[in-house]
């Protein structure tokens, strides 16, 4: 049960995810929840990139100075490019749903938005 010593970036990414989930679990306002979700997604992207980082190597642009041995792992960066845009797409969709909800329910407090239940 030793406390796992993880790198600084892992710690940052993980705490972003946890703060985001905390926001979703506790906050009542729908927009606040969506902001927390977006923070979770940024945290996950940071985690994905920090998994691919190799100390002492530079960006995977294979110009003259940098050969295959001096470049960081390019795959996570390719994945994160997609993940960021997916995050924005989900957030944009969620916000437009929130706008329609506000028009129809007049409130954004998720305690009141409970017509579909049981």
């Amino acid at each position: 049960m030793s406390v796992p010593h993880i790198g600084l970036y892992y710690f940052g990414a993980l705490s972003l995810v946890l703060v985001g989930i905390y926001g979703v679990l506790v906050k009542k306002n729908l927009l606040k929840i969506l902001i927390s979700l977006s923070i979770v997604e940024t945290g996950v992207n940071l985690l994905l990139i920090s998994v691919g980082y190799i100390t002492g190597r530079s960006a995977p642009i294979l110009s003259e100075g940098i050969g295959p041995k001096q470049a960081v792992d390019p795959i996570p960066q390719a994945l994160v490019l997609t993940a960021i845009v997916i995050g924005v797409a989900t957030t944009a969709m969620a916000l437009s749903v929130a706008i329609t909800l506000y028009e129809k329910y007049g409130t954004l407090n998720i305690e009141e938005i409970r017509r579909l239940r049981g």
Binding site: L31, I49, V85, G87
Partner: peptide, 27 residues
Amino acid sequence: LLQAPDVAMTEAAIGAALSGAVVIFAI
């Protein structure tokens, strides 16, 4: 800092600018 310039630019352009703008329009 993690040697990922592409991702940094995309995150800045889309993450900071656009998703922030979209949230503000929703507010």
